[in-house]
Design a protein around this nucleic acid. Structure first.
Lengths: 157, 157
DNA sequence: TCGATGAGTTTGCTTTCCAAACTCGCCAAG
DNA sequence: CTTGGCGAGTTTGGAAAGCAAACTCATCGA
């Protein structure tokens, strides 16, 4: 992977884009934070999961917290940076809910309101522009590479 | 990967979660739709890219369109379903912009307004609840598995 | 005719993946 | 106390995927 387009999508995927990594984030966000839970809920081989966890800790989206000594036992909890990947999980889930399995969802999210407003409606996540609040549409979007020598379709010159 | 939690995140990743797949989506969304462009801009091995493209076409997020016969040459264009993965790309990019490379962005997005409003501001994507319009926070979120035998932390019983 | 371009395919080697078995420390029941 | 079980990995050996570089084949342009 040499000389590819400099890009935060690629950068993020280099950290959390390996097989199972985002599923680990899903599980720890749900509250399943222990090794054997992760093995069961994700269905990953144990050795692979060991590597992924090591990586995710190194990368700063998980932290390994001891919940017992003698025997030493740890749980893996999402850091703030890890929780900030939730929008990625939500958009992946929204796409799957729309396009997979004839539209019926394996899991439903509830939005329990924070600032005093009555909670308890279903959450359907949408991506909007924080500036104008409008839903982002592909045709209303233009990309501007900041790297000299790169255009939107590839290297210049 | 047996007996894992039924989940649209896993389902979506099973289709587009392999290495390079989302980068292909990024490129075709930007307008780089041809094989050699993709090789250059992504930095993927050619044979691997061949497989990914085949898969993405099979799965329905790309379509292979001839732009010349004699010699037969094709471009890969995002389908509607493919374009609907843009929210995933946007949230991945937003995370990377925030957490990688000291916060400076390799690419800036411009939101050119659609419905008659003045265009031309920077796009910072945010995930909100379509019901109430509020930004989604982790602690205001509850998950409800729809599959008998599964709780939020794993298989019941 | 010579070279370049586009879109792959082939080759030979390295790395990962995977499932199953194994380890190690500890606790609890018989 | 010794057997069984759990939690959290580690080891093993074979199958699959990844990789860079070289190769193919058709066509166009100089």
């Amino acid at each position: 992977m040499k000389d590819a387009r400099p890009c935060s999508i690629a950068g993020t995927l280099a950290l959390v884009g390996e097989k199972y990594s985002l599923l680990v984030l899903r599980e720890v966000s749900l509250g399943a934070t222990r090794f054997d839970q992760l093995v069961r809920n994700i269905g990953a081989p144990r050795d692979v999961l060991t590597n992924r966890l090591k990586r995710l800790v190194d990368v700063g989206v998980l932290e390994k917290v001891a919940y017992s000594e003698h025997p030493p036992r740890f749980e893996y909890r999402p850091t703030t940076a890890g929780l900030e990947l939730e929008p990625v999980l939500l958009t992946l889930m929204a796409w799957g809910d729309r396009h997979l399995n004839d539209g019926d969802r394996p899991m439903v999210l509830e939005h329990v309101g924070g600032h005093g407003h009555v909670g308890g409606h279903e959450l359907v996540p949408v991506v909007v522009c924080s500036e104008c609040g409008e839903q982002v549409r592909h045709d209303e979007l233009t990309a501007h590479p900041q790297t000299p020598g790169w255009t939107v379709t590839g290297p210049a010159a």
